[in-house]
Design a protein around this nucleic acid. Sequence first.
DNA 1: CTGAAAGCGCTAACAG
DNA 2: CTGTTAGCGCTTTCAG
Lengths: 340, 340
Amino acid sequence: MSNININELAKRLNLSKGTVSKALRDSYEISEQTKTKVLQLAEQLHYIPNPYASSLRRKKSNTIGVVIPEVMDSYFSRAIKGIESVAREKGYHVLVYLTYESFEREKAILNDFSSGRVDGVLLSVSSETANENHVEETMAKKIPVVFFDRVLENVHTAKITTNDFESCYEATHHLLQQGCKKIAYLSISEHLHIINKRMEGYKQALFDHGQTHSGANVIACCDDNEKNYALLLKILKANNRPDGIIASVEKLTTPVYLACKNLNLSIPEAVKIVSFSNWEAAPILRPSLTTVTQPAFEMGEAAATALFNLLGKRNYSLLNENTTLPSTLVVRESSVFNRS
Amino acid sequence: MSNININELAKRLNLSKGTVSKALRDSYEISEQTKTKVLQLAEQLHYIPNPYASSLRRKKSNTIGVVIPEVMDSYFSRAIKGIESVAREKGYHVLVYLTYESFEREKAILNDFSSGRVDGVLLSVSSETANENHVEETMAKKIPVVFFDRVLENVHTAKITTNDFESCYEATHHLLQQGCKKIAYLSISEHLHIINKRMEGYKQALFDHGQTHSGANVIACCDDNEKNYALLLKILKANNRPDGIIASVEKLTTPVYLACKNLNLSIPEAVKIVSFSNWEAAPILRPSLTTVTQPAFEMGEAAATALFNLLGKRNYSLLNENTTLPSTLVVRESSVFNRS
DNA sequence: CTGAAAGCGCTAACAG
DNA sequence: CTGTTAGCGCTTTCAG
């Protein structure tokens, strides 16, 4: 804790606290002369303002809260990077909270925010989150919330997503083109809007390709990869096993690959795979992985930028902006049979 | 911002601010009766104390700062998870800052901390960081700093590391056992203590195996993977190319694999590889990757725990505790020729 | 056991 | 242009 404060500066300069404060904030009502005097002494004494005194007085923390389910996921770590980079630029600080996919924790965290700890929130909801009351409550306290990736559709605010429907449509279409007759879609939640959007894209592609909706093959995975692995083994052992798999999130890739390996099902000959993933390692997997790659960093940036825009305004609650940044399907060996 | 504060509670209960405050903090000098009355009303009105008022008064923020070079690395994301989990348990909040391997940023961030914004710091230094003045300065302000992974040896404080020397010795020994004649060590910094420790383990293993120190083959990689890739291509094209590679950090794995692929050097036949890595995807790479796996989550936990211990004490600066958690060498296909 | 009062460090109205 | 004053919401003496 710096023991030199604004009083000390004022005393040494024979100025009042108020004048010093204004000079430091570069107020127009202070002469250039005193400004430089103040700034110089401040510099010299390594004066650093107490952020909490300032926050208390101004009712503004210059801090945002980032609430995400998980950080061990290259999407979220990239997104944090995007968020952090714009926050730094704006002079904001970033509090990170993990929900571990628990709705209770998510609620508790948002509830804490009504203390005024943060000026705004960047949120990607847990897979359990099925209603929006907690978010509405923090927004009612005039703390803007911006969603990224895992949005809550019914909340009236800015949301940054990628083109989940289209990209999964494209992924499914791609697998169909490669000759897949039975494609499975691995879900991780019935609630998550983006997971369902992806599922719809998948179903629509099947439909457009002449398969009925009932032909869809949606598999409910969970947060526990041990269980997912067991489930996949069972499914891939069955007679009517799928010959194509779409993993709706990155973490499902490993159990899929391991299950295929264990059962001696070669990828892509026996099973073709596409994953939503931002793994840097995708090109060096066995076989290299076809991915739907999301613009994670950019989405983090966009979310933070949207939040800072709201923080500038009065009636932030009025806007309901939907920003969609496109993902790209990167075709690699896991989905293509004869690829030289 | 909650509009109901301690004054409001006091008014409604016909008590004084002070009494309410003490009741909320469960002070021994308040009767059970009034305590429950206060707690009930607080609950009912959803009272949440203003953290910044409290911080200002108590000179304690209940917040720690985590300063790391990068978050797109499975070591650091796992470590954050460990840190966050113990911070939550202790009722602390976590500010995350990224240095992007820049010493200047690291300095600026630590400098800001002397404002009292955080009660303590968890630090893993940038690859550029070559001196400890900035850390000494924040510690001089009575803000304890605990290092994890990328430590500064000369700072007298708690440090959490893994057994870098031994694990790299073991990795090198393993490659020698597999018949490697010329092993390259990929470094990313001359400054980083842990990278040098690993290098020493590597050199010692070579020495113990009858190779002179001058036989060591240390390659200076950088933060830019494009350049690393180009460098590796050059090295692997040469006549006297290495037949074994140790990547001192995870991110170097991809360029190594890609360079081998590009040059049609098969792993492990032509080149054997071990990486320091916590990739979940390691088992499903082509070929699966032999890793030195660090106890990342545990190191995060340990660092946070050490910090909270310091925060409880008076003369924190007195202790210079070195905690070492062991890494494990996980042998997979990339380093073993005839593995069924 | 409860109340009164002072003040953490800063900002913002208002005077001058 | 500068000074004075009154808090922000909470905690902590110190009295009673």
